[in-house]
Design a protein around this nucleic acid. Structure first.
Lengths: 198, 198
DNA sequence: GTCTATAGTTGGATAGAC
DNA sequence: GTCTATCCAACTATAGAC
């Protein structure tokens, strides 16, 4: 008599999530996943078709978690730019990089529709969220009406993603922080007098 | 009697440069390099200590080339923001990603000082260059004196690096372009009236 | 549902002939 | 200086016992 397998599946997905973050898709082997999860080969191939299938489950969970966390962060009240600034400064493990964005560097991820889709959809979702926040700011009179919300949202996301790159290149989170300071200062120039007063 | 080996070394470095760009460090095997270069195992291990040593030579050449190209681009005349805008729009093979920035996602690169150093130094060089351009713009009266040149330079580099990430996630260079449009519009708000008139 | 055993391929490097 | 042959470990997956 064996257990139901729920714990095994859970451990496999969590181990895969960790390894994808640490080493990327190409750098993550089934063997390493199994060792970290503490299960045998057979269990993995019983529950999943193989490395790609397991990675898909792991990526989907990671993107789902990110959506939940970021969604909560923006659910609160406050001026648009303040909420965005809080978001930009929220990051802690900068040197670990972005668990989603780092996957885009892996050719085996971007050429596999099942693996790229959740990544793509997450960035699309985030862009829509930031676009809505910026549009709210304009409607509230905090932000200059001439600001292009969608383009600005793209820029904000890109600065974050690029911030990870600079921090890892320099092995210092301060490089990330400086890029955030720069974009926050630029965004601040789009505040209206009313937005500045609050 | 054999050839001098110059061509062999050349082909090895060029093949490695291509593969590092396409597949990253972990995803690039000595075997793949040799096949693409059309040389045997022995040649590689005669001229280089191994994979890491060859990768170092390839990365150093790539960073050197990038410095030369970007240096030329900024050597020309023109207002600071125009030159920066030209730089941001210069990119062609967006979906291939940045041959330098992509290396930061590879743990075997960032933990190896010999491999990380040229990457780090390239970003430091680029930041210094952009900082100087922005400072020039301030001294010329084109740009608002309240702009922080170093932080803004970091942001500009980060937007480019993040632009690659977004484009690859969406498999569409338009995502890169939109992030550039957004940051250019933000930078434009830092122009002085004099800078706008020109 | 889980395990170990096994297999074929590739990764990274060395040995030694020419 | 270059080549082929070879080595051991790891990668990814399958087989089949329990």
């Amino acid at each position: 008599m064996y257990s139901t397998g729920v714990d095994t599946v859970e451990r496999l997905i969590e181990s895969t999530r960790e390894l994808l973050w640490e080493r990327g898709y190409t750098g993550t082997s089934p063997r390493a996943i199994l060792e970290r999860a503490g299960v045998g080969q057979g269990s993995m191939y019983h529950h999943f078709d193989g490395k790609a299938d397991l990675a898909q489950a792991a990526i989907e969970r990671t993107t789902q978690e990110l959506r939940t966390e970021v969604g909560k962060l923006f659910a609160g009240p406050g001026p648009a730019l303040d909420r965005i600034t809080t978001y930009l400064r929220r990051e802690r493990d900068v040197l670990k990089g972005c668990p989603i964005g780092r996957l885009t560097q892996d050719p085996d991820v971007v050429t596999n529709p099942d693996l790229r889709r959740p990544v793509d959809e997450t960035f699309a979702w985030l862009k829509a969220l930031l676009t809505a926040v910026l549009t709210d700011g304009q409607n509230n009179g905090e932000l200059d009406a001439s600001l292009d919300p969608a383009a600005t949202a793209s820029t904000i996301i890109a600065v974050m993603q690029g911030g990870y790159v600079l921090a890892r290149a320099g092995n210092d989170p301060a490089y990330f922080d400086q890029a955030m300071v720069g974009v926050v200062a630029l965004l601040d120039r789009a505040r209206t007098d009313a937005g500045r007063a609050s």
